[in-house]
Amino acid sequence: MGAYTARRLLGLIPVLLGISLLVFLFLHLIPGDPAVVLLGERATPEQVATLREKMGLNQPLYTQYFLFMRNLLHGDLGNSVFNLLPIREQLASRWPATFELALSSILIAVLVGIPLGILAAVRKNSMADNFSTIFSLVGVSMPVFWLGLLLIYLFAVNLQWLPPSGRISVEAGASFKTITGFYLLDSIIQGRSLAEVAAHLILPALTLGTIPLAILTRITRGAMLEVLSQDYVRTARAKGLGERVVIWRHALKNALLPVVTIIGLQFGTLLGGAILTETIFSWPGIGSWIYEGILNRDYPVVQGGVIFVALVFVVVNLVVDLSYALLDPRIQYR
């Protein structure tokens, strides 16, 4: 296991270098002088010259890359062109919103998807199975931005059950303290506004969670069917063990392995999908931040956001791989 971990970590180095190279080149691929691109249309020639000097744009490309890497390793991603705030600070204040949303979406997917998948597999070809099949097929085909609009239309505008956007209402927000940035956690710590915060989270989390939910239902069903047809399950049944025990003790444990992998992979994908969801729900996370960055031509923001998401994605995939290796029965049982 240790050797495997080391090998995986080592294998990450070229990928991380590649990511940094790609993101570094990002600014240089945009037509025009990067300094002008960064300063915006109102910059004076003197300011452009100063920034060119500061960014080392007059030096060869490899030196610039070296500088970029040095800053990156120090966590210095530059400043926003738009509001001049350091990228690092903005990332720090925004990532909890995105993570809370993504985690809630995954939670919905797990809490609904896995039971639904199990049910479908256990009662193959029943109504429940057909429903889950149709549900998962429609779910993966769903444009999330459209789903978001439909949910707002239905639950926020027409029924007025849930708020249409934002993380907390103004009334509750006035006395709400941001401690961790995870509002659910913050509200528990402070012992207030939990319902408020949860209500704001429901629609965006449903929107973002639908695709992973559909995928998880399908994968769980498939994995369960596979496991239920295995010899040891048949043996267990033959031994006269109750159906419940067979399913929960024997089958589920083994079926969950591919499911865990999918959960991890989906989490990374969610960070990409968050751009659309956050835009629709005015959710102050990384996704809407990157999108605003693109609209404002605020390239340091886009650069910082993209590199952050890519890093998280890589780390999550690594964790998934490692936990897979850790849990793999072939390694455990042989």
Binding site: A172, A195, E196
Partner: peptide, 14 residues
């Protein structure tokens, strides 16, 4: 209006 869900939940807290 019909803001029952949030309304009821938030009532006690607010």
């Amino acid at each position: 209006m019909k803001r029952t869900l949030v309304g009821l939940l938030a009532l006690g807290l607010l």
